[in-house]
């Protein structure tokens, strides 16, 4: 198709290296048999063993998974409903531009601003009820807030790839509203819903800034833990932890990739 210029390939490989070197470095050091220093001393898995025995880490891991799961569930429902409500009904075209704007705001706004705004919101809500003290609740609520848009966008994209003909065909074939929704609409957007959920889950697992501003002492997540460790002093356990985190977050991504390519 095109002539292959070696320099293009070179830069391509260099770029890939640039992106992967950090992760590979962490992985390598996670199996390095050395407590301090960065010289290679031999292969070992003992840091992973220590990992599992570390209470704080296990706590943080449980928190992270819990928050991710709960927030994903809530955000998937809300996000799907949002996409359906906005894009499956006849709104005037001016409304559509407004919707696009609203849905895209959390995606474009820098996360630090969202983190701050959410912290502010919780401070205000705390006046109403104590459940809004910084803790699990605020963490989950914060995560849901930024996840909704992403789920909605994925589902919206799926909705838009389905034309009106499939719906009309269903009606032409005697489908009632319920039958139509259950047998046509839902199955067709299901890949989008799952992809959106995977996306939301990963975003939650990876989130640092928003969690950092909106967590409580009993709701530390892994990214926060790792960050604190950097300040305290890095240990090989942390490398093991990071490597584990990397591997675990890769799984939903690959699933979601598969799903968004199907139809």
């Amino acid at each position: 198709m095109k002539q292959k210029r070696p320099i293009v390939a070179l830069i391509a490989f260099f770029s890939m290296a640039l992106m992967y070197v950090p992760s590979i470095a962490v992985a390598v050091f996670s199996v390095n048999d050395a407590i301090y220093g960065l010289t290679w001393r031999g292969f070992t898995l003992r840091w992973y063993q220590k990992l599992i025995q570390n209470e704080y880490i296990i706590d943080a891991a449980i928190n992270t998974l819990f928050v991710a799961t709960v927030s994903t569930l809530i955000a998937t429902v809300l996000g799907t409903a949002l996409a359906l409500g906005l894009y499956r009904f006849p709104w005037p075209p001016s409304c559509h531009r407004l919707f696009d704007l609203v849905i895209n705001i959390p995606v474009v706004v820098p996360d630090i601003i969202m983190a701050v705004a959410l912290a502010l919101a919780f401070n205000a809500l705390r006046l109403l009820s104590k459940t809004f003290d910084m803790g699990m609740v605020t963490l989950v609520v914060a995560h849901v807030t930024f996840q909704i848009s992403f789920v909605a966008l994925v589902v919206k994209s799926r909705l838009e790839s389905l034309g009106p003909e499939t719906d009309e065909a269903a009606r032409d074939l005697y489908a009632s509203s319920f039958f139509h929704f259950r047998r046509v609409t839902l199955p067709l957007i299901r890949p989008g819903i799952i992809a959106g959920a995977m996306l939301a889950f990963t975003l939650s697992l990876d989130d640092f800034i928003i969690s950092f501003f909106n967590h409580g002492p009993d709701s530390i997540t892994l990214p926060i833990f790792i960050y604190a460790s950097i300040k305290r002093g890095l240990t090989p356990e942390i490398h093991a932890l990071s490597t584990a985190v990397l591997i675990v977050t890769a799984i939903p991504i690959i699933i979601a990739e598969r799903l968004t390519r199907k139809f």
């Binding site: 034309g163 003909e165 499939t166 009309e168 065909a169 269903a170 009606r171 032409d172 074939l173 005697y174 489908a175 009632s176 046509v184 067709l188």
Partner: peptide
């Protein structure tokens, strides 16, 4: 349409 005894073959077939 869902109550008419009329069925359509769409130009794009519109298969599910």
């Amino acid at each position: 349409a869902s109550k008419r005894p009329i069925n359509t073959v769409f130009q794009s077939y519109a298969l599910f």
